[in-house]
Design a binder for these strands. Structure first.
Lengths: 205, 205
DNA sequence: GCATAATAGTGAAAACATTCACAAATGAAT
DNA sequence: ATTCATTTGTGAATGTTTTCACTATTATGC
């Protein structure tokens, strides 16, 4: 069966809210209530979950902790994935300090740059490595995913280096389309694009 | 006619690449070449454009500058929209310095925070205002869109303040679903979610 | 224990988005 | 001038995602 991409995105969102709910001690939740929290429709949530199994109980809904665990399993969050950030500019720096990542089971295990000003310095307790050493250190640290916050001009070249070292998942903040081998997954986060899309809706009001 | 949401997102991406192409002096481009640059199919590009008119010329493709201008018109980028950033934490700070915004016709006209440590300070040349004065300053500065980089706990409350001042477009970085009046548009950028979605694809390899 | 309300799960229908495939127009080459 | 290659724009076909609507199950109140 083919699982819609949007389903995966939504599962991530459900996960986060289940995390909050668990924290504040909520035991049970119906698809209806969860829907109103996450801003979706109840049937969307039920359908999304149905791709992976059936986790609820007719009449009373879902057990928050169980559902949270199931989604973690689906998304592969249980193993505490190890992530590297490449590019210690403003954005990279902001992301090293972003609590959301660690909270959800990601471990920022290494950071890289190519500038001599930055290599050897510590950023929130993490030693900045020379990007030239990526391959060795990535292996050593068990890096599985890379967050790319390098300047646009450098993005493609560094992508080549990184995928050449066996990385199969990239979160790319540079506003370019990266050419990668077929088995590598890229997710683009394009801040200016998000803003431009919004602008369209401002215009047509 | 109903324009697909993805079409709008893609137009933004086309726009940026047309901008680059224009800068480097490219005069003409076919849907085929543009497609390979932006990572889409040629017919997707043509279909996307067809919702708004017909801008190409059979046999020779599109004039880069003209198409760029047309898309700018569609997305409402021509008027140099004025944007405020609310929340001068790490992420807000990184975004004030993000060149992509200004380059594409957005003007970061004001920044806000609620902390006395930050109010009155300058961030990349912009005076940080007290969030309590939002309404007045937004009117004064002609703010149309807000980038929200406040802590999760504060996001809903500040959204209320901001929409209460007549703002109709929000780019939200806080990982919550914001409740807003029907005529307000919210785009969520959720960094941890993007990473989690990627994680799924790492798992299933 | 029974009636009523709440709720999950899910095929089927509807809505939405992409891709195909081709006609018509243009450009280039000779 | 004619042929051939290129390319757009677009209906139609296909594929994908969401929503509907219903069944079956569980919980609750009396």
């Amino acid at each position: 069966m083919n699982i819609p991409e949007r389903t995966i995105e939504r599962l991530s969102i459900y996960y986060r809210h289940l995390y909050y709910l668990a924290q504040q001690g909520t035991f049970n939740i119906s698809s209806r209530s969860l829907a109103s929290i996450v801003g979706e429709k109840p049937e969307t949530i039920r359908k999304d979950l149905s791709y992976f199994g059936s986790f609820g109980k007719t009449g009373s809904g879902y057990v928050v902790n169980d559902l949270k665990r199931e989604i973690a399993k689906i998304l592969g969050l249980e193993q505490g994935r190890r992530v590297a950030i490449v590019g210690m500019g403003n954005l990279g720096l902001a992301l090293v300090g972003y609590k959301g990542f660690e909270m959800l089971g990601f471990k920022i295990a290494a950071v890289f740059d190519n500038s001599l000003n930055k290599i050897g310095k510590k950023y929130r307790g993490r030693l900045c490595h020379n990007i030239a050493d990526f391959s060795r250190i990535a292996r050593q640290e068990g890096i599985e995913m890379v967050i790319l916050t390098v300047p646009t001009e450098a993005a493609q070249e560094i992508t080549k280096l990184v995928t050449g070292s066996g990385i199969k998942a990239l979160l790319n903040f540079a506003p370019v389309h990266l050419n990668v081998p077929k088995d590598v997954r890229v997710t683009n986060v394009d801040l200016a694009t998000a803003l431009k899309s919004l602008s369209f809706f401002v215009s047509r009001r």
